[in-house]
Design a protein around this nucleic acid. Structure first.
Length: 460
RNA sequence: GGCGCGGUGGCAGAGUGGUUAUGCAGCGGACUGCAACUCCGUGUACGCCGGUUCGAUUCCGACCCGCGCCUCCA
């Protein structure tokens, strides 16, 4: 039985899908005006692991993650760049797909784009107006009337009164209440726009997620997820719009990832302290970045630092070392480790605990090898690869992982030649020369591992 | 100010009412020509103060500290 922490109830709940065997999940994706940063990667990886585990448990998962491809920031950035906004969004979407692929994030089942759902958005706004949950303001915008929805604040635990009291300046005059938010924004002259019953304009940010999620998954679905900073106002507004429009419960379980921090501050676009995925991948192998993300619980805050990434690299290296030189067995029955792994993952996707199990399996492999039991080692290796796959780890050939060209000074051929020279020196018991070669390699970032079968190498 | 989350050993990071997390780093031993890898062994811990309990790091309360949201942000 899987238990999931639900932001709505603020506790872990037994997960019971609406339709047995099926999971319908929606996650708020990217606004594509810039490259994805580590914070985005965290959400991407977290829900990728969740999807993988649910599928591992036999669920048929319908995973929808949207793309916001029309928005004020997109238009602003495109104008700064002097390009058509669709050129910008197309470029950022391919960059995002590239980054995801490197991190081992599987594509969602569906990836709807806001601009392809304008009709659904307009239909939903029309419904909201007809039910008196929304109104057309003097400036041509359409707003959602927050006080028309009783449950407003139930996700973020905010009271409407507190929100109004704390409302910051710059309240749009056209709004009836400061907490109301735009469903449809009237276009200014020359702006990109779509026709609507309320004049030319474009959708507000929140409504697109309501329209796309209910369109792809139905009025009520199982899981809705996203980044920590979307809880309010974005998700709160989604609930209000959707439930007001359909009269049905929106998402059953709300899941939020924890923030990535840099020097004790949240990594964010507004603070400008973010590292893009591609930046980080210049210094670290993608699987190391993924390991770093997965090695702590998805809801906890994690600090980004060079030290933490480097440590993740050493830890992953240990796991791959266990696999080195082994051919994993084909079929291996459930083991005690499988059950431990499942127990950890069942508990709100405790990937940190699951990784500890992986290390337990690695230790077992090494012990079998030490005892010369190749068959048992190969069986355990199969378990390590099988469980690793659920986390999106351990799927590379160990040599490929160790010897990936990270821009070192030496080519694989040059390294092999030096290793041969060292082997010859050792054979002639010229250890001074052998050690000189090993030191030379080490200074160029190549570490040697001697074993009975010979010498293997890796880039450190 | 309102709402929410968290403080675990040198570091990272799980978890539990009484028994080993795990990883990195350290120390001792084995292996090795010497190392690396690996194996065996080993140390340091639960912010502070009360309470409940036979027993609390784990439950309850107060306090201190940190963080997040309350405006666009994953």
């Amino acid at each position: 039985m899987i238990r999931i922490y639900n932001t709505l109830s603020q506790q872990k709940e037994e997960f019971q899908p609406i339709e047995p065997g099926k999971v319908r999940m929606y996650v708020c994706g990217m606004t594509v005006y810039d490259y994805c940063h580590l914070g985005h990667a965290r959400v991407l990886v977290a829900f990728d692991v969740i999807t993988r585990y649910l599928r591992h448990c036999g669920y048929d998962v319908h995973y929808v993650r949207n793309i916001t491809d029309i928005d004020d920031k997109i238009l602003l950035r495109a104008e700064e760049n002097g390009e058509v906004y669709t050129d910008l969004t197309e470029r950022m979407i391919s960059a995002m797909h590239e980054d995801e692929g490197k991190l081992g994030v599987l594509p969602p089942t569906e990836e709807p784009r806001a601009t392809a759902h304008i009709d659904n958005i307009i239909a939903m706004i029309r419904t909201l107006i007809s039910k008196d949950h929304a109104y057309v303001a003097d400036n041509g915008d359409v707003y959602f009337a927050v006080d028309s929805f009783d449950g407003y604040g139930k996700l973020s635990k905010k009271k409407l009164d507190d929100l109004l009291a704390g409302a910051r300046v710059d309240v749009e005059q056209a709004k009836r209440s400061p907490a109301d938010f735009a469903l449809w924004k009237a276009a200014k002259a020359g702006e990109v726009s779509w026709n609507s019953p309320w004049g030319d304009g474009r959708p507000g940010w929140h409504i697109e997620c309501s329209a796309m999620s209910t369109c792809c998954l139905g009025d009520t679905f199982d899981i809705h997820g996203g980044g920590p900073d979307l809880m309010f106002p974005h998700h709160e507004n989604e609930i209000a719009q959707s439930e007001a429009a359909t009269g049905q419960e929106f998402a059953r379980t709300w899941m939020h990832a924890g923030a990535i921090r840099v020097n004790k501050e949240k990594m964010s676009k507004s603070l400008g302290n973010f590292f893009t995925i591609r930046e980080i991948l210049e210094s670290y192998p993608p699987e190391v970045v993924r390991y770093f993300l997965v090695s702590s619980h998805y809801r906890s805050q994690v600090d980004y630092s060079e030290d933490n990434l480097a440590e993740a690299g050493r830890s992953l290296t240990k796991l791959y070392h266990a696999l080195r030189g082994l051919v994993p067995a084909k079929d291996v029955a459930d083991t005690a480790h499988d059950r431990q792994f499942q127990a950890a993952m069942d508990d709100d996707f405790n990937t940190a605990g699951a990784i500890a199990v992986l290390h337990g399996v690695a230790a077992e492999i090494n012990q079998h090898r030490r005892q010369g039991d190749e068959q048992a080692a190969s069986d355990s290796a199969a378990v390590l690869v099988r469980l690793g796959k659920v986390l999106g780890l351990m799927q590379q050939d160990p040599e490929a992982f160790f010897q990936a060209d990270t821009g070192g000074e030496l080519t694989a051929e040059e390294i092999e030649a030096l290793i041969q020279a060292r082997a010859d020196a050792r054979k002639g018991r010229d250890f001074a020369e052998a050690d000189r070669i090993r030191d030379e390699l080490a200074s160029k970032g190549v570490i040697l591992d001697d074993s009975r079968e010979g010498t293997s190498w890796r880039r450190g």
